[in-house]
Amino acid sequence: MSNTFEPEIVAFCCHYCAYTAADMAGSKRLSYPPNVKIIRVPCTGKVDAIHIMKAFQKGADGVYVAGCLEGDCHFKNGNLRAARRVQRVQALLDEIGIDSRRVEMITMSAGMGERFAKTAREFTEKIRELGPGPVKAAERDFGLSAAG
């Protein structure tokens, strides 16, 4: 089963660094798994804990938030706030029995196309090993679909 499992991954990327790094990866033709789908935000400081939770609830198997390197945030400290929120979601996931490794905070600069591709590969691989997320697992085990 897990051999054929293709995870669905949502990446919230800030406009100034991670989204640009993703474009950079593209223009350098660096391959990374197509499982990663990017949602652009002005700053990772905008990524609400509820957005991450809803992503899981809608069917994501893994979510990561990608912002600027520490000290490089276009809005001073949005990336640091995002990192703390990610920690909070991790704790909440643990409490409800979902592996907290399914969510992660990653930082990179706009020029780091290589890093974008590498982290996308690594994260996808990790989620592949962790298996289907809550919604897909319920679908598989009980034929249920998500609410909300």
């Binding site: 939770m53 609830q57 029995g97 697992a137 319920a138 609410a147």
Partner: peptide, 13 residues
């Protein structure tokens, strides 16, 4: 909203 989401996911599992 967060608690609602967490509970729903927990029970879905």
């Amino acid at each position: 909203s967060l608690l609602s989401s967490a509970l729903q996911m927990h029970f879905l599992k």
